[in-house]
Amino acid sequence: MLRFPVDRIIAGQHRGEYTEENTALACPYCNGKKGPNIASVVPGTQGPPVALFNPRTERWADHFAFEGARVVGLTSTGEATASLLAMNAEERLELRSARGYGA
């Protein structure tokens, strides 16, 4: 069974605390890719870094959409987050396809 750890959105090294406002359930794969990052650059650019998606203060649909099984960033935050978290890695696309995303 897949378990979802409680992740600090802003990591401890950036003074993020274990509060309701700063925690969210995280996919273990995404959590491992995110690490302590709070920002990243948009792929194909030289920066500046943009804040990663915050599930406590932002709506998923404002930053992401599905094109088939692929997650597409609609904003710079969405693009940077999707890239850093490797949301479109081959095994993730296969899993989404098998579960009917993009059908």
Rank of each mutant, 00 (worst) to 15 (best):
L2Q: 06
L2S: 06
L2K: 08
R3S: 11
F4P: 04
F4N: 02
P5V: 00
V6F: 12
V6I: 14
V6P: 11
R8E: 11
R8N: 11
R8L: 12
R8W: 03
R8T: 02
R8S: 07
I10A: 09
I10H: 11
I10V: 15
A11G: 09
A11M: 05
A11C: 13
A11R: 00
A11F: 07
Q13Y: 08
R15M: 12
R15C: 11
E17A: 14
Y18W: 13
Y18G: 10
Y18V: 13
Y18N: 12
T19P: 10
E20S: 11
N22V: 01
N22Q: 06
T23G: 13
A26F: 05
A26Q: 05
C27H: 05
C27W: 00
C27A: 08
Y29T: 01
Y29G: 01
C30T: 01
C30V: 01
C30W: 05
N31E: 05
G32K: 06
G32E: 07
G32L: 04
G32H: 02
K33G: 06
K33W: 07
G35E: 13
G35T: 02
P36L: 11
I38A: 15
I38C: 11
A39V: 02
A39L: 00
S40C: 04
S40H: 12
P43T: 00
G44D: 10
V50K: 04
V50G: 10
A51D: 08
L52N: 00
L52Y: 00
F53Y: 15
N54Q: 10
P55A: 10
R56H: 02
R56S: 10
R56N: 15
R56A: 09
T57S: 15
E58H: 10
E58D: 11
R59Q: 15
W60K: 02
W60S: 14
W60P: 13
W60M: 14
A61Q: 14
A61R: 13
D62E: 13
D62L: 04
D62S: 10
H63Y: 10
F64V: 01
F64H: 01
A65L: 10
F66E: 08
F66P: 12
F66W: 11
E67C: 09
G68I: 04
G68R: 06
A69F: 00
A69T: 00
A69C: 08
R70K: 14
V72M: 10
V72C: 07
G73P: 05
L74T: 01
T75R: 00
T75G: 08
T75M: 09
S76E: 15
S76C: 12
S76M: 10
G78F: 01
T81R: 05
T81I: 10
A82K: 00
A82W: 01
S83L: 04
L84C: 03
L85K: 01
A86S: 06
A86Y: 03
M87A: 14
N88V: 02
A89K: 09
A89Q: 13
E90R: 06
E90T: 03
R92V: 11
R92Y: 03
R92N: 12
L95Y: 07
L95P: 01
R96Q: 08
R96Y: 03
A98C: 05
R99E: 14
R99N: 14
G100D: 13
Y101F: 15
A103F: 07
A103C: 09
